[in-house]
Structure formats: structure tokens, C-alpha cells
């Protein structure tokens, strides 16, 4: 690997000061599962690597009074797999964070790292979108918040400005009768990069009979993860029993903007966008109906 200086900082301000001083030669190191692989392959370069994992508050999962979660940037997927509230109340997010990489990647990888790497196929981002997560960004001029759906701008690119650090994600509390799910297609059973992925969150009313709101987001079928507003607009206020799954699949296929590459063809990805959206919708509805009387937690795999 190319030579660089290593800075294990202990405060956000230290990280900001180093970023300001070293400019484009500085890179933030979080779990490292993307950055170190990219530095080895020469796809990124760095003169200074700033390790933010030893900043104490960034490793915190705070349960907020309103029922939401403040998720520090350095919290690993493994920590979240063991977090009962995360598993129970944020099911779409749990689906995603539980299947990123394998067990040994999850021991290091963070949700914020997955977001900032901005892969079109990132598993966590569609789930973050349907859970209405806000990105908390610290920079030279203070803190700002950006909704996740506006964070990624192109493959590997985000709205982060030079000198900024994502410090946390704010996950709002789920409403009553809420369910969510994330599903992806991969050629293996585990540990692979999504050919396509779909996240769905539903808020039901009328004792599970009517859609109050629906959010859908797709992964790996566009240059960034895509929020599919057309499905939410179609379903809001309608009885669950009257929904045409064919119509939902067709709306998802229409929203997809896939390419062909080594993982899958354009046609396969477009097809998968429809199939996965419908399946995730069914799981989300099921979870929303059960959320009124939650079933006992199953232990993590």
C-alpha cells in the first residue's frame, strides 16, 4: 500500500482541523473495508489517513426520547445486529445492516461508511431512504443535516464538501402500524454485492387495512440508490386488499435505470426491481400488521 501518515484522532474537531490542514491529501478512515481496499488497488490515494473510530461519541447508539435513534458514524454493523431496538423497531435497516459483507466485514464495516462510499449497490442506502434518515454533517462552518435520498450524487460521489465529516445518522421514530423490509438479489446465498435491491416501508391504518404512506427505494439499478415516489403516490390512502402487485412491479421497473455489467444485465436488473419491490412490500405489510403486537424477537444469526 502507498505510504501515508496515520492519525487516530479523539475528537471531531481534531478531525476537522486535520482535514482543513491537509486538504485533498487527507482521507477519513472508519471501518476501512472500502478505503483500505481502494488504497491498495490504487483507486484512491492518501497522504494522511484520519481514523475517526476512537472518537468516543461516534461509537454510540443513542435511543432518543421520541423513539428515534442517533447512530454514531463509527458504529459497526455487528454492533447493530446485537441491538434489540434496532432489530425490532427498524426492520428495514436491520435487514440491510445484517447482510452487508460477511460476519468479518460486519465486525468492521459501518452504516455511515457504506453511505459515504456511495456505491450504487450499497445495501444500507435504500433502507436508510425508506426509514427517512437524516445525515448529520460536521464541517468548518458547523453542523448541517441532509436527507439520505439527497446525499449520493453519482457512483462514489456525495454532497459532502471538502473538510466535512459525517458524524451520525438520525433515524426518526417509526409511526404506529409501521413495517419495512430490504431484499436484494445475489447469485450466492450470502456475502455478495447486490445485482439489485429494494427497500419498502409502509405505514398502515384502519387496523392494517389501508396504506397511510408507502416509501420505496431501489439499489443497484441506477447511478445512485433511487427513491421511487410514484409507488408511494399510487398507494397512499388506498385499501391494502385492492392493490395490484403487477402494477407496483411495473412502477418499480419503470423507475429503474439500470446498466449491464459483470453482475447482471439491464433486462435482468429491471425485472428484479419489480420482483424485489413486490416481495419487500409484502414483508413490510406483514411486519406492519404484526407491529401492533410484536412477536418475540428471534435471536440474531
Amino acid at each position: 500500500m502507498q505510504a501515508f501518515d496515520y492519525h487516530p484522532v479523539s475528537t471531531v474537531n481534531e478531525a476537522l482541523a486535520l482535514l482543513a490542514r491537509e486538504g485533498a491529501g487527507a482521507r477519513l478512515l472508519n471501518g476501512g473495508t472500502d478505503l483500505l481496499a481502494q488504497l491498495k488497488e490504487g483507486r484512491r490515494s492518501a497522504n494522511h489517513v484520519i481514523d475517526i473510530k476512537r472518537i468516543p461519541e461516534l461509537s454510540e447508539v443513542r435511543e432518543l426520547q421520541d423513539g428515534g435513534i442517533w447512530l454514531g458514524a463509527a458504529v459497526t454493523c455487528r454492533t447493530l445486529s446485537h441491538h434489540a431496538v434496532w432489530r425490532e423497531r427498524f426492520p428495514g435497516l436491520h435487514d440491510a445492516t445484517h447482510l452487508i459483507g460477511g460476519v468479518q466485514i460486519q465486525g468492521r464495516a459501518t452504516v455511515v461508511g457504506n453511505l459515504c462510499n456511495a456505491s450504487p449497490a450499497a445495501d444500507s442506502i435504500p433502507a436508510l431512504i425508506v426509514h427517512r434518515v437524516q445525515v448529520c454533517i460536521a464541517g468548518p462552518s458547523g453542523l448541517r443535516r441532509v436527507p439520505v435520498e439527497g446525499f449520493c450524487t453519482a457512483p462514489g460521489r456525495t454532497v459532502l464538501l471538502p473538510g466535512e465529516v459525517v458524524v451520525a445518522l438520525e433515524v426518526p421514530p417509526p409511526p404506529a402500524e409501521f413495517g419495512a423490509a430490504y431484499l436484494r438479489f445475489i447469485p450466492r446465498n450470502e456475502m455478495d454485492i447486490a445485482v439489485a435491491g429494494a427497500a419498502v416501508a409502509v405505514e398502515l391504518g384502519g387496523e392494517g387495512s389501508r396504506f397511510q404512506s408507502v416509501r420505496v427505494a431501489l439499489g443497484a439499478v441506477g447511478p445512485t440508490p433511487l427513491a421511487v415516489d410514484a409507488i408511494g403516490a399510487r398507494l397512499a390512502g388506498r385499501p391494502v386488499a385492492e392493490v395490484s402487485l403487477d402494477e407496483i412491479a411495473s412502477l418499480a421497473r419503470a423507475a429503474a435505470r439500470p446498466i449491464s455489467d459483470l453482475r447482471g444485465t439491464l433486462a435482468q436488473r429491471r425485472h428484479l426491481a419489480g420482483v424485489l419491490t413486490v416481495r419487500a412490500l409484502r414483508v413490510a405489510i406483514d411486519r406492519a400488521r404484526r407491529s401492533v403486537t410484536p412477536p418475540p424477537l428471534s435471536p440474531p444469526l
Partner: peptide
């Protein structure tokens, strides 16, 4: 693979100095 503070990790994706 190694166990770092009991957690399974890839040692190829960790800087040695992170293990201080």
C-alpha cells in the same frame, strides 16, 4: 481472519496501528 477483542475481522483490511 483473526479475532480482534473477540470480534471476527479480516486482518488484511486493518492497519496494524489500529490495533494499538
Amino acid at each position: 481472519n483473526v479475532l480482534l477483542d473477540g470480534v471476527l475481522v479480516n486482518s488484511c483490511l486493518i492497519l496494524a496501528l489500529e490495533v494499538q
